[in-house]
Structure formats: C-alpha cells, structure tokens
C-alpha cells in the first residue's frame, strides 16, 4: 500500500461508506486497545444481513470469504456475541475485517437469545454458527440447519458460557 492512501479494508474507511447506505447507528466502531489493534464493527442486528451482502459484493471490498466465527460470553456486560473475521480472496486482503453481532441479553435456561445468521451470505459460517449455537446457546435466525454440532442432541446446557457448571460439581460445592 503506497503511503498516504487509506487502506480500504480498515474499519475507518468502511464506516463512512456504510453510513452512506444504511441508517445512522447501524454500524459503530469498537476499538481494540491491545497490541494487535484489531478494531471491529458492531452491527445492528436488523441490518446485519444487508450490510454483510454489501461488504461481500462491493467492488472495492469483495469480502468474499468469511474465515472465522467466534462466540463470546460477556458475563459481566450481560450479552453474548458472535464475531466474524472476513477476508477478500479476490483482493488478497491480509488484515481481517471484523464484524460483531450482539444479543440483547444472555437469556435464561434454553436458548432464547438470537442474532441474524450470516450463513445465507457466507456458507463457511454454517458449521461455525452451529458450533456457537451448541456451546453458547445463541440462536442464529435464518440458519438453514441449526442443530447441535459437537454435543449430543439431548444435551441441555451450553458449556462454553462463563457461568456453566459441569454436572457433578454442584453437589460438592
């Protein structure tokens, strides 16, 4: 990248482009304070699928490849998150564009909190969103085949949640 030009894949250059197309407040910058400085975009669930399609099809970005989806449980902040890492195979981008989708709460008992599924946009999310549903209990609305992936079907709990108590331990506590 020649000096002076803005990297089109940085969140700073994507945000104004999203502001042109979508209503205000649909995407906000989340700053990463760590050494890697991987800043991300927090998306409003109602427009997430449209934004994802825009990012995938925009000729300057062509984020045609969703590499990774991470589930997160922010116990103290009171919500769950799905974090997507996007790259462009066509443009050979080397830094990820990071999207975050947040649930409105953590839900109690069976999976009741949801975010929109991005599997219809990037099929590589299919198994990864199933895994997050399985281990965190986030329901991905619009997912074509949302079933548990690693745990067995009869399993009730979500073991990756921060407040998960493994069976047997509660009796001794």
């Amino acid at each position: 990248m020649p000096p002076g030009t803005m990297n089109p894949f940085s969140p700073e250059s994507i945000l104004p482009r999203l502001a042109e197309k979508f209503p205000e407040g649909t995407a906000t910058l989340v700053n990463d304070t760590g050494a890697a400085a991987q800043h991300s975009l927090l998306l409003d669930g109602r427009h997430a699928a449209d934004i994802a399609i825009f990012l995938r099809d925009d000729p300057a970005l062509r984020l045609d490849y969703c590499s990774n989806v991470t589930g997160m449980d922010w116990l103290k902040k009171g919500f769950l998150e799905a974090v997507y890492h996007l790259y462009s195979v066509e443009k050979k981008s080397s830094a990820p564009v990071i999207l975050r989708l947040r649930t409105s709460g953590r839900g109690d008992g069976p999976a009741t909190v949801s975010v929109p599924s991005l599997t219809p946009v990037w099929r590589s999310c299919e198994l990864q969103e199933r895994e997050i549903y399985d281990l965190y209990g986030i329901v991905f609305t619009g997912h074509p085949d949302l079933r548990r992936l690693l745990m067995w079907d009869e399993f009730k709990d979500f073991p990756m949640r921060k407040d998960y108590v493994p069976p047997g331990d509660d009796a001794t506590a």
């Binding site: 990463d32 304070t33 760590g34 050494a35 890697a36 400085a37 991987q38 590499s67 990774n68 991470t70 997160m72 974090v83 890492h85 990820p96 990071i98």
Partner: peptide, 24 residues
C-alpha cells in the same frame, strides 16, 4: 499477561487456514 485486547492470527497450515482468535 498481555494487555487487554484481542487478536486473530492465521497461518497456512498443511490442511488450510489455521487461525487462533485470542481475547485477553
């Protein structure tokens, strides 16, 4: 003890993209 933050890093593994996403 890394400073609070997150990092996704990947390498070309023998089977494909092997990545780790860490949050500190």
């Amino acid at each position: 003890r890394p400073k609070a933050g997150e990092a996704y890093a990947r390498i070309e593994g023998p089977k494909g993209e092997l990545g780790f996403h860490l949050v500190s």
